[in-house]
Amino acid sequence: MKQNQRYNPAEFQRKFFVYRLLQDYYSGCLWQKKDNWNEILLTLAETRYQEEIIFFDLGMRLIQKLTQEAVYDFNRLFVGPEKLLAPPYESAYRNAEGLLMQKETTDVRKFYSIVGLSVVGQNREPDDFIGLELEFLCFLLYQAVSCFQRGEERADFYLNVYFEFLNMHLGNWVSDHCEDVLRHSTSYFCKGMAMLTKGFIEREKSLLMHKEEIL
């Protein structure tokens, strides 16, 4: 019974959805989804995270409209061509000199390789791009629950890697990054997404404290 709670499919589904949403946001492809935005918001509301995470709630209130201004803001924050106001790369925060493709990046690469993954076109895009880290976490969850459903023991392994990666990587810098966004952003939308990201990842990280209960 405890086992079932640990791998509660509904819980994974809602995490899965949020991860995919954040990943798409950072990868710059949400904008093509303008027409479906209301639908996405509804699904997001169904996760009910807003009821337990205050930042999630605040964030959701700010992202109701996907405006062109938000696109420009997004590019100023994360894409360029100007100096990035909130670089979406772990090494930009954690490398002592803020340089990309350093040890911080290859450490992330090593994590990916533990589960047999690597970045498409490796060495073109830093491995520690937030979109990739989110995708990785999402994949780990997916594997955990798939293994569980198939009755495979590796489920625990994936969940362990999940928490370890959160603890050692994304969870370690995402708050600073989101703070940067909140400081520099000029759009409700990007501010909202920063709150959502921060709230969600911090909650995931906090689950680590109770990992034994979950696992």
Binding site: P9, A10, F16, S27, Y112, S113, L117, V120, E125, Y142
Partner: peptide, 16 residues
């Protein structure tokens, strides 16, 4: 938010 998973679709990552 219920039902079963689809296959995991990779975008930026891939099997090494």
């Amino acid at each position: 938010l219920s039902g079963s998973f689809y296959n995991f679709l990779f975008s930026g990552l891939e099997p090494a």
